[in-house]
Amino acid sequence: MAHTDTHEKTLADKILERTGVDVRECYQCGKCTAGCPMVQFMDLTPSQVMRLAQIGDRDAIRTLLASQTLWSCVGCLTCTQRCPKDLDPAAVMDALREIAYEEGLVPDAQKNVLKFHEAFLKTVEHTGRMSEVPLTALYKTLSRDFFSDVLLAPAMLLRGKLPLVPRVIGGRKEVRRIFKRCLEPEQSERPVQPEHPDHPDEKTEEGRP
């Protein structure tokens, strides 16, 4: 659906556009939070995420996009399953994470989650499939986390679970084109302007003492 330029898009509009979910319909029952297996690792609960997305002012957006929660959602869909309003909070998390990623707002403590996703996608982009060895090598290089899980490797090899030759498909160039079109859409398809440009100091504010 086309939006007119006279109407500035709210955060709720952007989420609706990306997911088909209208966060304004959330009535804060808290079921998403009650069932979330990752809530103990989050700074905002899923229902707080929904609430802040409804409010959508500058402070709410800043809090949301910098939150640990977006990167702690494991995508188990418990919230989505239980939402009495059929609002799909997991899809809202995906949309907010995507926006945070596009705007470069990933909290330091969550960099490893991002590096893992990036390593995974790089592996697929180049070969068409995920292979354990290149994925792990790339992830460890990006995250500088060289030592965790190294003891698992020999045990996996022994069980024939760590194929050393990466899986490569015939259509890998086709897959690379698909990646290019998805990750670098035409200028006209680019997401709208940030809502509050002209505040160059904002991005660094979070990290200041």
């Binding site: 996703h117 996608l121 498909i169 698909i178």
Partner: peptide, 22 residues
């Protein structure tokens, strides 16, 4: 023949088009 990775969690975490295109 020649199937590719579904994109798993990584794709839908970072890009909704890729999550469907793969």
């Amino acid at each position: 023949q020649d199937w590719n990775c579904c994109g798993a969690t990584a794709a839908h975490s970072l890009n909704h088009d890729l999550a469907v295109a793969l």
